[in-house]
Design a protein around this nucleic acid. Structure first.
Lengths: 242, 242
DNA sequence: TATTTTATGCAACCTAAGTAGCAGAAGAGG
DNA sequence: CCTCTTCTGCTACTTAGGTTGCATAAAATA
C-alpha cells in the first residue's frame, strides 16, 4: 500500500493502535505498510480456508473475523476465537509452515491487509523490535486458547456463558460494554462456548429474569456486572434453584 | 552444568535428540548447557506452581511432567498436556512475562535442566538459529491445544478417548506402542479428555470386549489400530449398538 | 407496504455423562 | 509374609444438556 492511497491515513492509524505494530516507530510501520496489499470482503464471506493458511498473513483493519472449525458429521460449529481491528492471522502456520485446519469467516464487511508469509518471516529475523511485539502477542493467544480448553473441561455451560461475557466486557458509561460479541445471535454465542442455541437461550432467559442482562435480538447488554462476577466466583453458576 | 559433570554426556545426548535443540550445532548446545543447572524431583511432586512460572525455564531430561489446572469447587482436574524428555516449559510466561495459571507435576522421578528466563530471552534475541527451532515448537504447542479445545467442543467422550490413543500411538513391532500414556490410570486418562473415571472405564470395557485394546492395571496396549481409526473416521465412535 | 427470511422463546422429550457406593484385584510398603 | 493403599469393575440413580418442532417476533428485501 502506497502513501498516496485514499485508505493510507486510516490504515496507518489502525496499525499504530494495534498490539502487533503499536510499539514500533512510525517509520518502521510505514516501511511495513509498503509490503501490504489492501483487500476487502463482504459480511459472511470466507476469508480463508484451511489449505490457504500457509500462503498469506492478514491484518484486520476494520470488521471482525471468526476462526472456526465444523464437525462434518453433526454440522456443529465451534468458534475458537474472534478477531477485530489490529489482529493478525493465521499465526500458527506462520510458525511451522503446516496448514491449520480452521476457516476464517468475515462477520462484518471486512477490510484487511495481506502479505506473503515470507515478508513476515524476514521481519521476524531482521527486526528484533518486531519480535518483541510478536512474541507477547503469540503468548496472549496461546493463553486464551488454553483457558478455553480448561473452561470446556472444567465448567458447565452456564458458567462458560457468563465467563464469555466477562471476557469481552470493557468498562464504559453508563454501563459496561460487550466488546466484539454484543450483537451476536444466540446461535453464535453457543458456538463460542461449545453448546447449542436452545441451551444458551435458556440461560439467557434466566439471566434476563434476574435482571442481570438485557438481551434483545442482536443486542446484548450487561446490566449488573457485579452480579455476573459473583455468579462465577461463588460458582453458584446458575445452579441456585432459589 | 559443566562438562565434567557425571550427567553431562547423557544430558547432551537428550538435548541433541530434542526438537528444541536438535537442530543446533553441537558447539552451540554445549554453550547453552553451561547456563543450565540440573535438578531432580520425586514422582508426584510439584515442579512448579502458577506464581513460579515467571522465573525459570525448564527442559526435561528424563521423566514426564503433566500440566494441569484444578477446578477449586469440584476438585476436578484437567491435564492440558503431558511433556517428556526434550520438552521445555513454561513457554507462555516466557512470551509475555505474565504468570500462567497451571501447575506442573512430575509423573515419574524427574530430571530437568533449569535456567532463568533471561538466559532464554538473550538466546532468542542473539541466536536466530535458536529462534528457528523455537517458533515451530511454539506452533506445535498452540496447534495441539487448539485441537484439544475443538475436540472438547465438538466430540463426545468416546471419540475423545480414541483420539487420545491415536495421538500417542507410535508404530512399532509387533504392535503399536502408546507413547507417554501407556501406564496411566483411568483417572488420569479421564482428566486428559475432560471426563471422569467411571465414564472412561465404561468405554475401555467396551473397547476391550471388542478386542481392540488390551488394558490391565497400569498397562494399555492397542491391539487393533485399524479398528480404532475406523471408529473415529466413520464417527460411529462407540455409538453403534450392535 | 407486503413478503420472505432469520432470530427468538418455549415445550416435551431423550440420553450421554456424571454421582455415589461398594467389592474385589493388584500393587506398594513394612 | 501380611497389611494398607490404590486401582478397577459394576450397579443403580440423577441430571445437565441436547434434539425436535413450532409459533411468534423482528429484520431484511422486494
Amino acid at each position: 500500500m502506497k502513501p498516496d492511497s485514499p485508505f493510507y491515513e486510516n490504515t496507518l492509524k489502525t496499525l499504530k493502535q494495534s498490539e502487533l505494530f503499536g510499539g514500533l516507530d512510525e517509520a518502521v510501520v510505514q516501511d511495513m505498510l509498503l509490503m501490504f496489499r489492501r483487500q476487502t470482503w463482504l459480511r459472511k464471506s470466507i476469508v480463508m480456508e484451511p489449505e490457504e493458511t500457509i500462503r498469506e498473513f492478514f491484518v484486520i483493519i476494520s470488521g471482525r473475523v471468526k476462526v472456526t472449525r465444523i464437525n462434518p458429521d453433526t454440522g456443529k460449529e465451534f468458534i475458537l476465537f474472534l478477531m477485530g481491528p489490529g489482529d493478525g492471522f493465521d499465526v500458527i502456520p506462520l510458525l511451522n509452515g503446516k496448514a491449520h485446519n480452521v476457516s476464517f469467516v468475515a462477520m462484518d464487511d471486512l477490510e484487511a491487509l495481506t502479505t506473503p508469509f515470507k515478508t513476515i518471516h524476514d521481519w521476524i529475523e531482521r527486526h528484533p523490535e518486531f519480535n518483541r511485539a510478536f512474541l507477547p502477542y503469540l503468548g496472549k493467544q496461546i493463553r486464551q486458547i488454553s483457558n478455553l480448553a480448561f473452561d470446556l473441561a472444567l465448567h458447565d455451560t452456564g458458567t462458560r456463558l457468563i465467563k464469555l461475557f466477562l471476557q469481552h466486557t470493557v468498562q464504559s458509561n453508563p454501563r459496561p460494554r460487550l466488546n466484539l460479541i454484543n450483537d451476536l445471535s444466540n446461535e453464535e454465542l453457543a458456538s463460542m462456548i461449545g453448546s447449542v442455541r436452545v441451551v444458551v437461550s435458556r440461560y439467557l432467559q434466566k439471566l434476563k429474569k434476574e435482571g442481570i442482562i438485557i438481551a434483545r435480538r442482536g443486542n446484548l447488554e450487561i446490566k449488573d456486572l457485579h452480579a455476573l462476577v459473583e455468579k462465577v466466583e461463588e460458582h453458584l453458576a446458575l445452579k441456585d434453584r432459589s
